[in-house]
């Protein structure tokens, strides 16, 4: 998982282009053994148990190992051993970058040291990054103007970055692109002690591809079912966000999603472009106001 975060850092520092980073992450993803498969190979989990955990991961903001332990499928020690095996077998990001000729080894080592210093990352504590994805989001986007509410924005984006790989098998990249996406806005408001509206704008091509992957349906055009698939994805993401907030003492209620074509979001909304292999999603978050 840390590969994605270090890769994001390289992109942010303009040491890699978005295209180069996607290439590297795809190579890494193709060689990364899934924890569930490793557990089945080791005779620790059944296929049904792995499927159950994957299903629960869609409804919870938790890692595979956490759910496996909570369900008493695995012990903490077994999860740790599987993670060590997984780390040993996957392609290292640094190796892929050097092999592709994107950066020299000496340059990469210097950047890695700088990265560790900036993220307060000590050797041997790479896995703690998962819980500190906020740090990476903070390195890319600046919500300081949101004051005390900035924490909610960082947490929402970090959640979205964790959710996208689960539903779409993609490694999302936060980009710094100023080029706004033209397309359909799908949004939803959460109300309670604070009002938060979130929405995504994507062009038809990306919307159709994401809707197909999310729904598993044979969609050939952007119709009501395709739009509804993305609306439901947003609804489920926000549902998990409300659960996370509730556990922190903030009760939020979801309102029905809204779908609007070719509209301009409120200038008060924060725009966060997220790139995946088939296009760019413009994510908008607005506190205390609707997106439109």
């Amino acid at each position: 998982m840390y590969n994605q975060y270090f890769g994001q850092y390289l992109l942010n520092k303009e040491l890699l282009s978005a295209e180069q980073l996607r290439d590297i992450l795809n190579r890494e993803r193709l060689t990364r053994p899934r924890l569930g498969l490793l557990a089945i190979d080791a005779g620790l989990l059944t296929v049904a148990q792995v499927e159950k955990i994957h299903s629960l991961q869609h409804a919870m903001d938790k890692k595979f190992g956490e759910i496996a332990v909570e369900k008493n499928f695995l012990t903490i020690k077994q999860v740790e051993d599987l993670l060590i095996t997984q780390r040993g077998r996957r392609l290292k990001l640094s190796q892929a970058i050097v092999d592709a000729g994107y950066l020299s080894l000496s340059r990469l080592e210097a950047v890695w040291e700088q990265y560790k210093a900036e993220t307060n990352l000590a050797d041997g504590k790479i896995d703690t990054l998962y819980g500190n994805l906020d740090n990476i989001v903070r390195a890319v986007v600046d919500f300081s103007s949101a004051g005390t509410k900035a924490k909610l924005l960082y947490e929402y984006i970090a959640l979205m970055l964790r959710i996208i790989p689960r539903f779409f098998d993609e490694e999302p990249i936060l980009t710094l692109s100023n080029e706004k996406v033209q397309g359909t806005l799908i949004s939803q408001t959460m109300t309670g002690v604070i009002s938060i509206s979130t929405g995504v704008i994507m062009n038809d091509e990306l919307l159709l591809e994401m809707a197909k992957r999310y729904s598993g349906e044979e969609l050939i055009e952007v119709n009501e079912l395709a739009l509804d698939s993305i609306a439901e994805f947003l609804n489920e993401t926000n549902g998990i966000f409300t659960v996370n907030m509730s556990e922190s003492g903030f009760e939020l209620n979801l309102e029905p999603q809204e779908v609007q074509g070719d509209v301009l979001p409120s200038p008060r909304a924060y725009r966060i472009p997220i790139e995946i292999s088939c296009g760019t999603i413009d994510l908008f978050i607005c506190i205390g106001d609707k997106i439109i």
Binding site: G239, T242, S246
Partner: peptide
Amino acid sequence: LSSTGTAT
């Protein structure tokens, strides 16, 4: 059957 599975 809901996405908002809070205890409340």
